[in-house]
Write a protein that binds this DNA or RNA. Structure first.
Lengths: 201, 201
DNA sequence: CAAAAACGTTATCTTTTGTTAACGTTCTGT
DNA sequence: ACAGAACGTTAACAAAAGATAACGTTTTTG
């Protein structure tokens, strides 16, 4: 995919948060970088300090960390979504986990240093502040729902929810990762799926 | 407690996000309101649209919602913390649950309309934007940890964590609410506590 | 293409949790 | 102060989840 098309995609995706006029966008896009990850390559590894956030033009990322040497998957991001080790990026502390490409993934990156430059640019500073706020607020809403689902719902209910809201992308993800995401073991998810199937038929 | 002391407390608490100079603070504090809730009074009820966020000068709030007519407690806020039905406030959609005072609670409120006024005030607009961002980012970090705890840890581990990090405030909260917070039933928490005690001794 | 690794399912057994109910204690409101 | 409600604990049983291992199948990878 051409870079110009990627940029248009990015601009469109950011419109859910904020709109840039052409002058602003011109400056903004000069502060962006491009990166591609092959399957299983890393966006960030545990212990590193995340120095950028990314927009996924195409592909998918998996967030996981190790517990007793075993990978536990926390989260996924897909095309047209943002991606970052948010806490590490914001607090400049070492990342507590890994972000890995589930498939070949094309990214647009905003590096901390460029974000800083834009924050100091009078044309963009206010807008960048607001963009940062809007994005953070968006994720808070997502998190509110996710936490609520853990407190309120059974694993089976959570699975049915995910199947309903993200059924399509689910098929691109190995099932054991989905199990982690739901807070259960792969074996348990397999049983839940069977249970649901036998009830349906 | 006198209002002036409350305001100093608030200013100090906000310093973790941003610092106001005296001129800015003077304007800021003229856009604040005060409110007290008696035990069991509501900060917000399900279906209402949250039109403010609050700073808890003293007291504690409990977030819960109803599932099949039963109260499920999601979260707590204590003195020196912020409180809001965040998603409802941000998106102007009906709140999905209740926020209730666990004890007598004194609040300082920022109403949406006053936030709006400050956002339009050239002296404060940039700072309010940044404050909004910082607060949202702070909560994202909290949420990241909380979600991670559900995915990675057993209920018993989560309980031990909470006991370690919030042992003191925990004693002010009825145990069945804590159970909900951990994503388990009160009966189950009682068993976990017994299990831990017998291991310790 | 072939060997090896990874994957999802299933079975078995253990552990934990949910559910309901009972009981004594504590808290609450009148 | 007293009656009623709410609370935490415990017990008994059912349901679900974790752990481990075995199995065929699919995917990787050299």
């Amino acid at each position: 995919m051409e870079q110009s098309i990627k940029l248009i995609k990015f601009r469109k995706a950011l419109e859910q948060f904020i709109e840039f006029d052409d002058v602003e966008w011109e400056i903004f896009q000069n502060h962006l970088a491009f990166k591609s990850l092959n399957k299983k390559e890393y966006f960030i590894k545990e212990g590193e300090i995340c120095n950028c956030w990314g927009f996924i033009v195409e592909g998918a990322l998996r967030y996981y960390h190790l517990k007793d040497g075993v990978e536990i998957t926390n989260y996924f991001s897909f095309e047209n979504e943002l991606a970052s080790a948010y806490k590490s990026f914001l607090t400049k502390t070492p990342a507590q986990g890994y972000i890995q490409a589930l498939e070949k993934t094309d990214l647009i990156l905003i590096l901390s240093e460029n974000l800083q430059k834009m924050a100091e640019n009078p044309v963009l500073s206010f807008k960048m502040e607001r963009l940062g706020r809007k994005i953070a607020e968006f994720y808070i809403c997502c998190y509110e729902d996710r936490v609520s689902s853990f407190v309120t719902k059974t694993p089976q209910e959570r699975y049915l929810d995910v199947e309903k809201t993200a059924g399509k992308v689910l098929q691109r993800i190995p099932q054991r990762y989905v199990a982690n995401f739901l807070g259960i073991t792969p074996v348990s998810l397999s049983r839940i799926r069977k249970r649901i199937l036998t009830v349906k038929s």
